[in-house]
Design a protein around this nucleic acid. Structure first.
Length: 633
RNA sequence: GGGCUCGUAGCUCAGCAUGGACAGAGCGAACGCCUCCUAAGCGUUAGGUCGGGGGUUCGAAUCCCCCCGGGCCCGCCA
């Protein structure tokens, strides 16, 4: 919380002394040095000046430090001292006598607010994620999307945005037609086999096998288009059946998402977009703005197309008058931004684990509410969609002449299966190192399977350590550990790096994992519990001068900087990295600085306060990561 | 063919936006640390031409260009 103050103060001091010395007002950086020996902050201003002044950096540094010294005084309590470094840096030491009490009190006195930072100013952010076709269970590839979206939602909330989370349900696509064909024309029973979830059954059995049947039975494949058309028209018995199946699958998918502590505000059904005539209104708008044209000749003759710079024209309306995939996406995206009139009514769909209500679009018998019109709209889809998303963004920017338009695609690379995992699933991958997942071909690892594996592994571990726990306790804790392992695994790395999912590696609970974070937290809570007294905000925190203590305080002091950065750059990874580094710093403190066994009562109280403040900072970080802070594990 | 993207230790990855002080973690390997707040932890050692080449710069893993290798995208499919 206060690291920000230290940086600000240092910047001001450097800027003021530049002016004193009559130096040009150059850009400079104040940041943490790569090593502890260099102090708490370092400034590179001498390097920036050397070009202007035509002097070597060390010489400038020596002069500037003398200008800086007078500014270090009681009115600027965060900075303690300044030293020139022969390499050319100006290094600062923080005044922990002031910084430590200030930081720890801030955390202890207002724990729930600690680490929040106002980036959004209450602006409305609409986030869409998940959007898995409702004909199969979620696999680990989907999980990356789900966790990324949910974590981003949590970050934006912590950075003071009003948030709305959407889940788009493509209930009128070919994938749905496939399983309907399976049930109606290929003899698959509608009842779920014992011991399976309905979404699993649809995905593993019906969907995969129907697609195999198509190859042998072209007549069956022919039925797809007819079935799809009936579903889109929405009137027939078959369409009602499809809707029923879709909802059953969707509810099972939601159970998996809820299991991972993910929540939504609204389900957007594609069929409602189709029926709502949103497309025709958006189409009129596109025509009016001259963004589409009716192709008169060439391969796209008779189609309404959109011209894209340096690319092939995109067809929006086929020559038979039907709309393409993209044509459904444009009005939906425009709706998210509030560029078209809201045609939907909203009904309550379900309660959720966090006590909130999940709504669904409806065209009749619902109430008016507002889920759209985001100041910022973030659509989370894998980076294969980048090109289409760019076109959508381009179109939107052209029709939103008045309003400010901030439509962003947050893409991420695929999750693939490692060679070992593919082999475990009896998939032949030749000499390749990984295998792309495919729901249609049955090549995937389901989310529930991974969670279950993690659960049973974690349960064993917890039981070994806590033999006295009841079965319910064991299950509750094991479940939180499983979720933590999976969630952390999905966001700890960069979005544009492919995740090669390896089932045995993913079951690790040690090292750079979610459970490592939870473990550090549990350790801290045991200290507080066994101390036999409460940590208070008025302890003498200035007594905490051990290097391990100071490092921990410094780490705690950075939380709001991390939240700010994560929200501004939509970077979920940075929060994971921070939580990990915070936990590591605590573990080092834990090794070196006994709390309960500390003889000096004042120092003991100060350490106890530090432990509690650490717990607050870590718990708040974990909340944003969607990971439960466990008292025991 | 065009576009996007990745390439850092045996493996998985930080660092790259805003160039700067001897390139950092985890896993795996070897060896240590529980009569002491949970060893899901901590320490020591081994392990690197930052894909290759050129350029810009006082200084490049970081910026620019070229090349090599992997992945993805370029339908009147969704």
């Amino acid at each position: 919380m206060t690291f920000r103050l230290l940086i600000d103060e240092t910047r001001k001091i450097v800027a003021a002394s530049l002016a004193d010395a009559g130096y040009p007002d150059v850009q400079f950086d104040v940041s943490e040095p790569p090593k502890k020996e260099f102090g708490d902050l370092t400034c590179n201003v001498a390097f920036q000046l050397s070009r202007h002044l035509k002097k070597p950096p060390p010489k400038i540094t020596a002069e500037l430090v003398e200008r800086i010294r007078p500014y270090i005084n009681k009115d600027r309590p965060a900075v303690l001292s300044v030293e020139p470094h022969p390499a050319g840096y100006i290094n600062f030491k923080a005044n922990y006598g002031w910084l430590s009490p200030f930081t720890l009190r801030k955390a202890l006195e207002n724990p729930d607010e600690y680490g929040r930072y106002d980036v959004g100013g209450g602006k409305h952010v609409v986030i869409e994620h998940t959007s898995v076709n409702p004909n199969k269970a979620l696999h680990v590839g989907h999980v990356r999307n789900v966790i990324l979206g949910d974590t981003l939602y949590r970050i934006m909330k912590a950075a003071n945005h009003r948030t709305t989370v959407l889940n788009y349900v493509d209930d009128s696509g070919l994938q749905v037609a496939d399983i309907v064909i399976g049930f109606k024309f290929a003899g698959f029973p509608v009842d779920t086999p014992a011991g399976q979830k309905f979404d699993q059954y649809c995905g593993d059995e019906v969907y995969v096998k129907v697609n195999q049947l198509y190859e042998k039975d072209p007549a069956l494949a022919e039925k797809r288009k007819l079935v799809l058309r009936e579903i889109e028209e929405g009137k027939s018995e078959l369409a009602r059946f499809a809707a029923e199946i879709t909802l059953r699958v969707l509810r099972e998918q939601l159970k998996t998402c809820w299991r991972m502590k993910v929540r939504y505000d609204l389900l957007n059904f594609e069929s409602h977009i189709v029926v709502s005539k949103m497309w025709s209104k958006a189409f009129e708008l596109l025509k009016k703005e001259g963004l589409v044209k009716l192709e008169q000749e060439g391969k796209n003759k008779g189609c309404w197309i959109i011209e894209v710079a340096e690319e092939e024209d995109k067809v929006l309306v086929r020559s038979d008058g039907t709309a393409t995939y993209m044509a459904k996406d444009i009005p939906y995206a425009a709706w998210k931004l509030g560029l078209v009139e809201d045609p939907f009514l909203y009904r309550e769909f379900s309660d959720q684990w966090d006590g909130s209500t999940l709504y669904a679009t409806t065209l009749d018998a619902g109430s008016e509410k507002q889920f759209n019109a985001g100041d910022m709209v973030i659509t989370i889809i894998d980076s294969r969609q980048a090109r289409l998303q760019r076109i959508i963004s381009m179109v939107l920017s052209k029709i939103s002449t008045e309003k400010k338009h901030d439509y962003r695609h947050l893409g991420y690379e695929a999750v693939t299966l490692s060679a070992n995992t593919a082999r475990m699933l009896n998939i032949d991958i030749g000499d390749r190192q990984f295998m792309h997942m495919s729901g249609r071909k049955g090549i995937y690892v389901s989310a529930d399977y991974v969670l279950n594996q993690l659960h049973s592994k974690a349960r064993e571990e917890v039981k070994t350590r806590n033999p006295e726990f009841s079965d319910d306790q064991l299950d509750a804790i094991a479940e939180e550990i499983a979720i933590s392992a999976l969630r952390y695994n999905m966001i700890k790395q960069d979005l544009d790096k492919m995740i090669t999912f390896d089932i045995s590696e993913s079951l690790s609970l040690e090292g750079d994992t979610g459970p490592y974070l939870q473990y550090a937290y549990a350790r801290s809570q045991r200290i507080l519990e066994k101390a036999g007294m409460d940590a208070t905000a008025d302890a003498r925190f200035e007594l905490l001068t051990l290097q391990e203590e100071v490092s921990l305080i410094k780490e705690i002091a950075k939380l709001d900087l991390v939240v700010e950065d994560a929200a501004k750059s939509l970077s979920v990874k940075s929060l994971a990295r921070y939580a990990s580094s915070l936990a590591t710093t605590f573990n080092l403190f834990y090794e070196k600085a006994p709390v309960i066994r500390e003889a000096d009562p004042e120092k003991r109280m100060a350490r106890l306060g530090l432990v509690k403040a650490f717990g607050i900072a870590l718990k708040n970080s974990l909340d944003i990561l969607g990971i439960s802070a466990l008292n025991k594990m």
